[in-house]
């Protein structure tokens, strides 16, 4: 079957999508909490003030979670899913746990979906932890000069991951097999 087309989230997505503690996968005071944050930029390098970021990640042990409770956080259950609108300076921030490798030896990453006014369909990317192990199918297949767009930088609070929709630092965005050729 053919998939329904996507459409932009438009300028008024704040009405329907962000929710209380959407950006707090764990409470900020938790000793093992880390921050994943960054800014979203357009093709002129101008911050995008109306973007929305979703992350989906395994736990520190690499376990993929199937726990409800992302929309109404109880403060204890780690669900692996978060959603955050950027602020007026294009900055987003999640409080979360370090993702672990889902298979031994594989570099760990956050799966990231990007939405924005002006962006007609969602974009997927990955935010790998710094210094990823070699032998990763995606990282190995990306030209070296763009590989860095998929890798977070460490800072005092956790990890920084900027997203460039366009321009000289354009982020590598992904397409998956079932996204292609589905009219065949």
């Amino acid at each position: 079957m053919s998939a329904a087309p996507g459409q932009t989230v438009g300028p008024f997505f704040h009405l329907g999508l962000p929710y209380d503690k959407g950006d707090e996968l764990v409470p900020p005071g938790r000793p093992d909490a880390v921050r994943l944050h960054g800014r979203v930029f357009d093709g002129d390098g101008v911050p995008v003030p109306d973007a929305l970021i979703e992350i989906w990640q395994p736990g520190p042990d690499g376990k993929i979670l199937q726990e409800p409770g992302s929309l109404r956080r109880d403060g204890w259950t780690f669900t692996g899913f978060g959603r955050a609108a950027v602020d007026p300076t294009g900055h987003y921030s999640f409080t979360t746990l370090v993702p672990g490798p889902t298979e031994p030896g594989k570099p760990a990453f956050f799966a990231v979906a990007v939405f924005a006014r002006g962006l007609l369909d969602r974009l997927f990317t990955r935010a790998y932890l710094p210094d990823p192990a070699t032998g990763d199918a995606l990282l190995d297949s990306v030209d070296e000069d763009r590989r860095g767009t998929l890798i977070t930088a460490a800072d005092d609070s956790g990890y920084v991951f900027d997203i460039h929709l366009q321009g000289p630092h354009e982020t590598v965005f992904l397409s998956f097999p079932k996204h292609r050729g589905i009219w065949a």
Binding site: W56, P58, Q66, P68, L120, Q166, S175
Partner: peptide
Amino acid sequence: SILRHPTKALHPVDPEGVELWSPC
């Protein structure tokens, strides 16, 4: 959309790990 679309082709990749699952 003019300044907010990627100009490079989406990079083909096979989904791995969490990408094969959805939040619950």
